[in-house]
């Protein structure tokens, strides 16, 4: 099939971008969306032009590297699907497709469709570490984890950090991502000692990065390739409230300890 692409081209972070129209000819319905872009790029390279830059890595929907706004939808029209797992059989001959990078001031465009998502890394880093015994590996099942908590923690941990939640949110809010990262350790017994400092630290970092705030549109959940539930946002709000109320206002390390 033959398609027409309207792609955002931007030389670098400082340059002004614009939409450029490219034909995509002889596209096989078995191609993934990224393979279709590869074919378009090969033609661009053959013609001496700069290929369209886009992020990708595993191409099997588990790494969270790829991601672009396809016809106004993060990762394209299919639910619970990353751009690399979107196949061209979704489209019909003659379709026009608009491709844009994630739009959020906290995700500056690096080039074309590539954005800098290190704000997410800093949110995770702000959560800190869990207290863990060093030395030999602990016995299996030494710490009992309720099945329901393990399942829910796993649902939160399914987040691949692709940024589709921010991209789809009308407010460019990172609350679904942050909520998933807060909940994933906050649900497990191993995550309890730092539960309050973790949620306050991550939320403070999220705010400092310049993301918007949640107004409960729930576009994030609909866009999430891992279908992370917005219930995690309610859980984060709850944890944040409890952490604030429980803060005793004392220094973390009391002076005068004799050990």
């Amino acid at each position: 099939m033959n398609l027409t692409l309207h792609v955002w081209r931007q030389k670098n972070a400082a340059a002004r971008g614009r939409f450029v129209t490219y034909p995509a000819s002889d596209v096989s319905p078995d191609m993934s969306f990224l393979e279709m872009l590869d074919v378009v790029n090969e033609a661009l390279i053959a013609g001496g032009e700069d290929p369209i830059a886009f992020d990708h890595d595993c191409r099997e929907g588990i790494c969270g590297t790829c991601g672009m706004m396809i016809d106004g939808q993060a990762h394209g029209p299919r639910r619970a699907t990353t751009a690399c797992q979107l196949h061209m059989r979704t489209y019909r001959d003659g379709d026009e497709i608009t491709i844009e990078p994630w739009r959020a001031d906290a995700f500056p465009v690096v080039k074309d469709l590539v954005v800098d998502r290190s704000a997410f890394d800093r949110i995770v880093a702000a959560g800190g570490f869990i207290t863990a015994r060093t030395g030999s590996a602990p016995d299996g099942n030494a710490v009992p984890v309720p099945k329901a908590a393990a399942d829910l923690a796993m649902d939160a941990a399914a987040c691949i950090g692709c940024g589709a939640c921010v991209a789809a949110c009308p407010n460019a809010s990172a609350m679904l991502f942050t909520a998933a990262k807060v909940s994933h350790l906050g649900l497990l017994p191993q995550g309890q000692p730092e539960r309050h400092t973790r949620v306050r630290g991550m939320v403070a970092q999220m705010d400092a990065e310049g993301f918007g705030t949640c107004t409960n549109h729930f576009e994030c959940e609909a866009a999430c390739p891992k279908s992370i539930s917005v219930r995690f946002i309610a859980r984060m709000n709850r944890d944040y409230l409890v952490a604030t109320l429980a803060d005793r206002g004392e220094p973390a390390s009391a002076e005068g300890g004799t050990g």
Binding site: N171, A172, F211, A222
Partner: peptide, 13 residues
Amino acid sequence: ARGIGYRERRNRE
């Protein structure tokens, strides 16, 4: 939080 908007966007939820 979003200085530059999308040319096209579709709402789902």
